[in-house]
Amino acid sequence: MFLQQRARFAYVLILPALVLITLLNLYPIIEGFVVSLQAQNQMRPNPEAFVGFKHYVRALTEQDAFWSSLGRTLVWTAGSVAGAYLLALGLALLLNMDVWGRGFFRALFLIPWVIPDVCTALLWKWLYGDEFGVINFLLVKFGLITRPVLWLSNPDIAMPAVIFVQIWKLYPVMFIVLLAALQNVPKELFESATIDGATMRQRFWYVTLPFIRSASVIITLLACIWTFQSFDIVYLLTGGGPASATKILPTLVYEKAFWGLEMGYAAALAMLMLLGLLVFSVAYLLVYRSQSEASA
């Protein structure tokens, strides 16, 4: 009786959260799917006309829209996540040594994470500037290049340049998780491996790595999920340009929906994007569940 009452009370406690999440997170997905089946071209009359899978067919068959954008999104995601992971791991390994002032350094390394996206984008635009950008200034000064590099307006360089910014933005969270995982590695294990004559590389490979493998998998999947759908940085830095060189899926969806006013087509693109994300998400949930079972 008492337990039943408590359980009933639990529903009261979660109700407001459940309602808000359903209305603003779940329902829009359904509505988004409905919209993707409608004409929804704001330039023409009768936006709610049913058009079936017309937009999907267009997206999947059209040259230079969905597929090329998907390709760029994969490059953007893989490049950013791999770069951020390596940087995060390097810093975490450094701080995992018995250094004095670990908390201080940890706080410093987290700073890029809290800088608002708009500021990050604007700031890097200023750093990357052709004429007065400090990166070009320093590179010229040290004789590494002779003339300024057009970081954001050269189609061949723009993608690596925006990936670099995303790495800067993304690595702190990965770093925090990896550092926490590293601190769970038992010191004795490491010491006995040393006594047994294991080299540094062997110690990393056979002692450290097994302990951080699960944390690495989880945080890498999460980072992929975030980066795959991230909008702000690229939109603000290049707007998808130059010559579409950085037009990743979120930028394409935004452009179609709010510049082209083709809401239906944009919704179809976004649904396709969700399918892509689902791969990462299912992987994440599977790993996450096997972990919670393992620790339970």
Binding site: A7, P28, F228, F231, L274
Partner: peptide, 28 residues
């Protein structure tokens, strides 16, 4: 509190964090 649907609710919290905002923003 142990209640029926607790696991489902927790899972919902985890899943909705992954929904792309660029998808939600159009219908919203």
């Amino acid at each position: 509190i142990r209640f029926a649907g607790r696991y489902a609710f927790s899972l919902l919290m985890l899943v909705t964090q992954m929904f792309p905002h660029i998808l939600l923003v159009i219908p919203l």
